[in-house]
Design a protein around this nucleic acid. Sequence first.
RNA 1: UGGGACGUCGCCAAGUCGGUUAAGGCACGGGGUUUUGAUCCCCGCAUUCGCAGGUUCGAAUCCUGCCGUCCCAGCCA
Length: 565
Amino acid sequence: MSSENGTTPTNFIRNIIIKDLESGKHDRIITRFPPEPNGHLHIGHAKSICLNFGVAAEFGGRTNLRFDDTNPLKENEDFMRAIMDDVRWLGFEWDELLHASDYFHQLYDYALHLIKTGKAYVEELTAEEIRAHRGTLTEPGRESPYRDRPVEENLDLFERMKAGEFADGTLALRARIDMTSPNMNMRDPVVYRIRNASHHRTGDEWHIYPMYDWAHGISDAIEGITHSLCTLEFEDHRPLYDWFLDNIPTPCHPRQIEFARGNLDYTVMSKRRLRELVEEGLVNGWDDPRMPTLAGLRRRGFTPEAIRAFWTEMGVSKADSIIPMGVLENAVRNDLNVRAPRTMAVLDPLKVILTNYPEGETEWLEAPVHPQNEAMGTRKVALTHEIWIERGDFMEEPPRKFFRMRPGGEVRLRNAFIVQCNEVIKDEKGEVTELHCTFDPDTRSGMPGASRKVKGTIHWVSAEHGQPAEIRLCDRLFTVPNPLGEKDHDYREFLNPHSLDVIQHAIVEPQVANGEAGDFYQFERTGYFCHDNVDSKPGRPVLNRIVTLRDSWARIEKEMAQNQS
RNA sequence: UGGGACGUCGCCAAGUCGGUUAAGGCACGGGGUUUUGAUCCCCGCAUUCGCAGGUUCGAAUCCUGCCGUCCCAGCCA
């Protein structure tokens, strides 16, 4: 059941929704994606976005983007804008743009209701005292001395909290539930705290701000959300989510369903860690192409299509998982393979002189833009007396199974003809600086000898027409699969010092040098690349390697090296 | 040592109110095509569902016990 044959892979949440639709519990579904605007979205959020928007779209439902902005100390408008950009970039459009702060008045009124029915009280204990009263995982908590405060007094105090009469942390509103519950969340959770802080949307109107548990379920109910999808760590909150909605007169009672986060290896995904990497200058911002943020992946050149396909393929379950980065990379290859225009680029140039090709002459060869898709047309490739080839494509004393250029050997220049290497020129240190080759005119594309077989085909670029380019090769950010999983070590210790390798003088075909931010290509035989969306300028190209091509030769090389040692 | 959840092929993951030979993708191995050692195309890849018992004509699916992993003691979300 792959998406390729037209069916969507199923999962337990989808099954619940199908059942609710069939039973008539809901006529149409409404989901929501509820980020807190306190950081940038990452690939893990994309899973939630794909799930929420995807399942609603599949069944003709709606999806809201709702900012969970209940903590003014951590949130701001810049993050909100970045999140909206990322969601749209991923390919989704929300039905309504909403904020928990839109409901602050309703949230307050519901709190009044809770107080009036004797189910909430104003706490005077300090945060530390509350903690001490809460008990432990194995011991029940103790009730606060303020727990039985009369309703009128609670109302009075709560109104004065709202009016800003008290300092931060002095009072709090607590739900009156059960201090002996084995579920810590039910031990009289705090519902409102005092924060004499300005909120990015409501300004100085409020001095009290609702906690997540209070705001979230009520916001869901106000919006008529049918299925409130969240991650596994909120499982313990569901009894509280339900208790709140059962004890106040909301228009409906959404169902919270939890699923497992999607983790990737060799990276970190929590907002806190990503923020640290950015703030400590360990990476170059939230959109550093090595980051697992959507902004980073976008800059790196990952496509939204690939990310969506990746999460569709991975499915949704409740089992904890760590997905190999290679799986994501493969999704990108699959997408780009079909769409990326082909071009030749030499990353580590070695000069080759075609001794029997006239000096000063340029011939423009016709080459397909995509070998499997004629509709993508052709491009012109300049051929001249001097060309560049990849240094790694020549070996003076090659091992067995090396199909590329060697002294006396023949190899095909892609899109051109077969050449033979006659002479190896070296400098005083013995380093190869130049190769002299002759070409076989009968083997050029279109000629009778073109079908002659040689083992290897290598890419090349005209020395006269090729343009210089900066190329950034990104590797995994960390050197271990789970940087946070090593006891006694800070995850920063595992940062990969070689995660960014900059090649200053690669050579690309002229049309690539004039590409624009976001344009992507397959550099034949080396990988997929795209123009960096901040640093690349026409005439001064900077390209990021999105991902390499699958490389079975690299595997063979590695095996040979291992067998020798 | 309280509570909540999870454990199906190397990695994801269908299937779980019992019923023929346990989907699919990725990875991997083998073969073919190929002017990218890419792509593409074939073929192979869990007698077994964390472990041990039990119920049953029949269990990954039900019961019991055990083991392992994750989450919870913010006036964060």
